[in-house]
């Protein structure tokens, strides 16, 4: 079962909650940090990330001796990554989306593909004891600084996971391509928000995205009490299950600032999270039913 932890707005506690859920689980679990622009999960997990690998994408490389500067590659490229000027053909690989069109269209077979590193995967595992002893495997995706495209790194991180194990996916914020890449084909999505106007506004966008993608989801309110009641009112009006409220508590903020997780500040939360995981697995049992 794959559960994605997402939110429209950043800083609502996605990572905190992903880590806490993985720690509270009563069976072996994988935690995948798909917030590849700013991965933070590893800070809260004492895992040795001893395996390192590169994430690469294919980019075209030109054999100048074969190229006759016909310009066909530049014509098919929708991303302006190749241009032919007179007797010179130039490739701008940071604009390339790896569609492979130029390779296919080249009449001279002058283009071949080479792998280019755009990010990294670091992984490792650890034994957790938050009431239930289990193994936590951690996979961290991170984008190389200066690279623009995160979806391939997110896809690579997700692919590395064992499909048969309970998997928690910490998603990037927002509702555009990176977030959608992270939540797609998950069995359930938990949207974390805070009870403020910003939180509510961004929650609505996230809800729209979930409905558009036809994914089952529920809402968790973090820092409950710091704002107003409009998030709860919205959820009940929209018939969205609000499955957990985590009280606004300075102990949590302080623990977080030191790189300590939610459960070290509020250990009493562990059984609640465990039963939430159980509930989700019952809701998703017949994969297509039981949503909302």
């Amino acid at each position: 079962m794959k559960i994605a932890i997402a939110s429209g707005k950043g800083g609502t506690g996605k990572t905190t909650l992903s880590v806490a859920l993985a720690q509270a689980a009563d069976k072996n679990v994988q935690l995948i940090d798909c917030d590849v622009e700013e991965p933070n999960g590893h800070i809260f997990i004492d895992a040795q990330l001893d395996k390192h690998e590169d994430v690469t994408i294919p980019i075209p490389v030109l054999d100048k001796t074969l190229c006759n500067n016909c310009g066909k590659c530049g014509e098919i490229c929708q991303f302006n990554a190749i241009v032919t000027i007179g007797d010179k053909t130039m490739i701008f690989d940071d604009m390339c989306h790896s569609c492979g069109g130029c390779i296919l269209v080249c009449p001279q077979q002058a283009l071949t593909e080479q792998q280019k590193t755009i990010g990294y995967l670091d992984s490792g595992s650890n034994t957790i004891n938050c009431g239930q002893v289990h193994q936590l495997s951690f996979i961290k995706g991170s984008i190389k600084i200066g690279e623009a495209m995160s979806p391939p790194v997110i896809r690579a991180a997700k692919k590395k996971a064992d499909q048969n194990q309970l998997t928690i996916i910490d998603c990037p914020p927002g509702t555009s391509c990176p977030m959608m890449t992270a939540v797609c084909d998950c069995d359930f999505v938990l949207l974390v928000t805070e009870p403020t106007p910003f939180g509510l506004h961004d929650l609505k966008l996230a809800v729209e995205t979930m409905r558009c993608m036809d994914l089952p989801f529920a809402v968790i309110v973090n820092r409950d009490g710091c704002g107003d009641e409009r998030v709860s009112e919205y959820c009940s009006a929209e018939k969205i299950p609000l499955v957990l409220k985590i009280k606004d508590d300075r102990r949590v903020a302080t623990a977080y600032s030191r790189g300590e997780g939610l459960l070290s500040a509020l250990p009493e939360l562990a059984p609640k999270l465990r039963s939430l995981l159980d509930d989700i697995s019952t809701w998703t049992k017949p994969a297509t039913e039981g949503k909302q």
Partner: peptide
Amino acid sequence: GPPGIGCPVI
């Protein structure tokens, strides 16, 4: 500005 360090931030 947007959060992160990817395409939108650049």
